[in-house]
Write a protein that binds this DNA or RNA. Structure first.
Lengths: 117, 117
DNA sequence: CCGCATCCGTTACGATACTG
DNA sequence: CAGTATCGTAACGGATGCGG
């Protein structure tokens, strides 16, 4: 069957903890990054990103991010085929955080990952 | 035996991806949050945070964050007992990102988590 | 006691095959 | 093309043990 119950287990009332309840994994913010950098992207375009997310993980993350209204379909009524995803205003509001992570990584991770861009 | 090899598998050269290779889980940034909010904290104080991290996960995260020099012991030569952890400059540089996550969560997650502070 | 390490059941992830 | 089903593997989470 399809249709899982897309609920989130909130660990506490702390807003940082709550943000991590949603975004605290290795893939969700990477999907947001792709949509912010390239604009609307289809399922297969997201699959083609260099980090190689697998199909079931991508599908489950898209489902959760859609439920939370961080992303949405470009053409909600159209068929899934060639129907892209894009960020909503909530998703777009994460841009400064992603920028901050990028700058932080370039400054503080280079000693451990020399090839960082 | 103790002493695992604390290495990171870097998925790509993208700085955002690299940041998430390190911080992309539900606990690492929460540990940083505690150290930033309260100053130096011991192992058992970190365990007492409201999100209830388990002992083995806390130990492995402290080990990785120490290896990456985001945190350090307050008294490196002293015994482990009552020896606290504190953020380094690299860890402290994450403060604006945590602040951003908090503001974002308060603005965009309240519809799904009414009790958020 | 405190700071972990070990054991072990449960859950999430990851690769691949498969379906509409 | 956009997912879903399956299954092996890795990470998590709680309980407990043990050294200092």
């Amino acid at each position: 069957m399809a249709s899982e119950i897309d609920a989130v287990d909130w660990r506490s009332v702390c807003p940082i903890s709550s943000a991590l309840d949603v975004l605290g994994d290795k893939w969700s913010l990477l999907i947001i990054r792709d949509l912010l950098m390239h604009g609307p992207r289809t399922y297969s375009e997201l699959l083609a990103s260099p980090e190689h997310i697998s199909t079931n993980i991508l599908a489950s993350r898209l489902s959760l991010l859609t439920y939370l209204r961080l992303i949405e379909r470009t053409h909600p009524q159209a068929a899934a085929r060639n129907n892209a995803y894009q960020v909503t205003e909530s998703g777009a509001a994460l841009r400064p955080i992603l920028d901050g992570l990028a700058v932080w990584a370039q400054s503080h991770l280079r000693d451990f990952h020399g090839d960082i861009v």
